[in-house]
Amino acid sequence: MARTWSRWLPAAAVPLVVAGSVAFAAQAGADELPERTPAEILTLLADRDHQPFSGEFEQTSDLGLPQLPGGVELPDDAAGDAAAVTAVLEALTSDHSGRVFVGEQDQARLQVFETFGERDVIVNGNEVWAYDSGDNSATHTTLPADADATTAAPGQQYRPDEVADHLIDAVGPSTELTVREDVEVAGRAAYDLVLTPRTDATLVGEVAIAVDGETGQPLRVTVTARGEATPAFEIAYTSLDPTAPDADLFEFTPPAGADVEEVAPPSDQGGDASASAQHPEPSVIGTGWESVVIIDAGATGLGDEPLLAQLTTAVDGGRLLGTDLVNVLVADDGRILVGAVPLERLQAAAAE
């Protein structure tokens, strides 16, 4: 089943779908893999088939992003943009671990462990659930019969295969592809495919994807900042089980007392005009590693969030939230510009 890589995210933007499953088989050690060129490994990635499996994973981040100030608490009525800022910062600054279960087509479950609970995303046919045990809350969406549930569920940033599929979109004239010495990840022999930007106009030094030598499954993704020796971001499977998970794992009933919210599925028919005004679609300037995403956040007031102000520094044209791998410019006119690029690139994009 060929895959289509049609979505681009900046390589360091660090993003549960069913598409990344894998057909397992007995395999020799890493030093016994047949030699393959980068193009052949890309083909192996693209042609991987669906097969149920389960696995455990770990994500580590060291982006150089300032930690949240001690004692920061959102007001009781905080929601929407303020909560979104906190959630994004927490995802970028914290390490995560969890489990993935993939069943039949359109059937998957992601569990992300936290100190005092876990977050779950469950896809079962056209039913999508998201549950947070921390506050015993759940959201539920029923998608139209012809909708693709694999693109509707949140949490994609927590799966090595999903991160790899987004990053592989960077492959093109702006990227040099090489293959390093084979590696072993989660007990599987893997090719170490390296993506190196051919431009200095990016904060990314390289991306390395460990590709299962037999199945084409991405097993680990590391992103290293330019000029650094150790990865700033890594997500990897630590164990894999090729047997089909119990079907009951994809059935979800909210616990007693849970606060359940029904969410309307996304619409391609124009949708709610007011909702579109509050959450405008971002635009993209540039291509590949030099891409800059621009969000017109003036209607949301996101740039005025006190928490964001605490973590940014004043620069020409706005305020900067800088990390080793991604920069965020909150422009004076309310726009937010994001890219795996130097500040000067964001400022130039803001002036276009």
Rank of each mutant, 00 (worst) to 15 (best):
D169M: 05
L219R: 02
S137F: 03
L177C: 09
R198S: 01
R119M: 05
L193M: 05
L240T: 07
D169S: 15
T230A: 15
Q217Y: 04
R198G: 08
V179F: 11
L195M: 13
D169V: 02
V163C: 10
S239Q: 05
V121H: 00
L167N: 14
V128E: 01
E118G: 02
G172W: 13
T150Y: 04
P160W: 02
F250N: 08
P218Q: 09
D248W: 00
T196P: 04
R159L: 15
L143H: 12
D146I: 02
R188V: 02
A201P: 02
E118Y: 14
V207G: 06
A229C: 06
W129F: 02
V163A: 13
L167K: 06
N124D: 15
I235Q: 02
V207T: 12
F113W: 03
Y191Q: 00
T224D: 07
T115R: 14
P245S: 07
Y158M: 14
P255S: 08
T178F: 11
F113P: 00
Y191G: 05
G155F: 06
L219K: 08
P218G: 11
G117C: 07
V204L: 12
A130P: 00
V121Y: 01
T196E: 15
A225G: 15
F252E: 08
P160K: 00
D146G: 07
V183S: 13
Y131F: 14
P218W: 04
D192K: 01
A225L: 06
L249D: 03
N126L: 03
Q217I: 00
D248H: 04
F252V: 01
Q217G: 10
L143A: 10
P154K: 10
A190E: 08
Q156R: 14
L219W: 07
E184Y: 02
A130R: 09
T150K: 05
E162D: 12
S133D: 07
Q217R: 13
E206N: 15
D148A: 06
T243N: 11
V121I: 12
E234N: 06
L143T: 10
N124A: 12
L195V: 10
P154C: 13
T175V: 11
P255G: 07
A152H: 13
G216I: 06
A210V: 09
D169F: 14
A164H: 10
F233E: 10
L143W: 08
N126Q: 15
V204S: 08
P173C: 00
D148C: 00
T115K: 14
G187R: 04
H140W: 12
D161L: 08
T222C: 09
D200H: 12
P242C: 05
P242Y: 10
P154L: 13
G125D: 09
Y158C: 04
T178S: 15
A186P: 00
F252S: 01
A138S: 14
T141W: 07
F113Q: 15
R119E: 10
A138L: 05
G205F: 10
Y131V: 01
V121T: 15
I168C: 12
R226Q: 12
E184S: 15
L240I: 11
P254E: 04
L219P: 09
A244L: 03
G117R: 12
P173D: 11
V128Y: 09
Y131L: 05
T115M: 12
P197N: 04
A208H: 08
A201C: 00
E127D: 14
R226F: 00
L177I: 08
R220N: 05
F116W: 01
G125N: 08
L219V: 11
A138P: 01
T243G: 03
E114Y: 09
T222W: 11
W129S: 04
V112D: 02
I235Y: 04
